[in-house]
Design a protein around this nucleic acid. Structure first.
Lengths: 176, 176
DNA sequence: GTAATTGCAAAGGATTTGCAACAGT
DNA sequence: ACTGTTGCAAATCCTTTGCAATTAC
């Protein structure tokens, strides 16, 4: 039941995200071949508003009937990140996640549910100021920052999920 | 020249960090054996004000003349984190770093040099407020947050180091 | 046609796990 | 004595890399 005829195993160029043009343009500017694999991988990212792992991307490609090697996905992500069209995240899960930068605030932060891994974005412009202030105080030349808040999302709370043990340990408070 | 007689290959109990008592106490409370390996590994962390990787810890153990398996270090770090005496960090380097929590502000943030990996700590209490505010707005139940600022430390700037390409890409700005 | 990409499988690095020998209580 | 730990090696997970076949230009 995993393999059966799909309407359009190879998606038509016209059905790809309009943002694909930006990626094609970037590739041409660098003299890099615009391959079908690169287009489809980029399209998966461009069509998702989530923070996808390489495994997620693979799964969506499979759903589309595409069979693209994992190495190609990794190599394409590298180019996409370098192009500035996609951002790489490491939420401490042991693997990376990717997010396109269209329709987002140019700088934003993340709320990460430690139970269901859902990621919600928010923006607090004062972080930018704070970064510059702190950097100045320490003679630091800042390039980027990351603010992440971990906890339980509303859905998980509604389902009665309680906190993991994280932070709930009882540190020994006085010397024995 | 790596192997020669060391004064005290096995450190005496009395020379261990006074904080070791806290760890012993934690272990006893749980009915876990207080082993020499656990004590020495904990002592390495307790005696360093840096953010150590498992490899760093191994190196320091070697310097002390201790020969402790990597698996034991990993297993001990797990207990130390659970005890609340040590905090685990993931600065996106592909491995974890550990820091003890004595003599630190209970909550603090990090400045990370992308060139020499030096970590500087700072504290901005307003982050706490911000976390709670943002969480409230999104129906989130926060447990912890992380604010990290990446860039070049003063030393590296003084040595004439310039930024990596990170953030210096030129995203295609208009549709082709 | 030529140069770069693809896909596979092997390599790599960090971390984990299985298991027999061993240490702590 | 009994239970849990240690250390080694093998296994696992994510990611990178080498190389012959293939594709873009």
């Amino acid at each position: 039941m995993t393999e059966f005829a799909r309407p359009a195993p190879v998606p038509m160029r016209d059905e790809l995200s309009p943002f694909i043009h930006l990626f094609r343009r970037y590739l041409r500017q660098r003299g890099l071949p615009v391959t079908q694999q690169r287009e489809v991988v980029a399209d998966v990212i461009f069509n998702s508003s989530e923070h996808l792992s390489v495994e997620d991307i693979e799964a969506r490609l499979r759903t589309r009937g595409e069979r693209i090697g994992k190495a190609t996905i990794y190599r394409t992500m590298e180019i996409l990140v370098r192009s500035g069209l996609v951002e790489e995240h490491d939420f401490g899960e042991g693997f990376k996640r990717y997010e396109h930068l269209f329709g987002h605030q140019p700088v934003h932060q993340h709320l990460i549910c430690t139970h269901c891994s859902k990621v919600t974005e928010f923006q607090r412009p004062e972080i930018e100021r704070l970064q510059d202030e702190v950097a100045l105080q320490h003679g630091f030349l800042p390039t980027r920052h990351r603010l992440e808040i971990y906890g339980l999302c509303g859905d998980c709370q509604a389902q009665g999920v309680t906190h993991d043990y994280k932070g709930l340990t009882c540190p020994a408070l006085d010397v024995a």
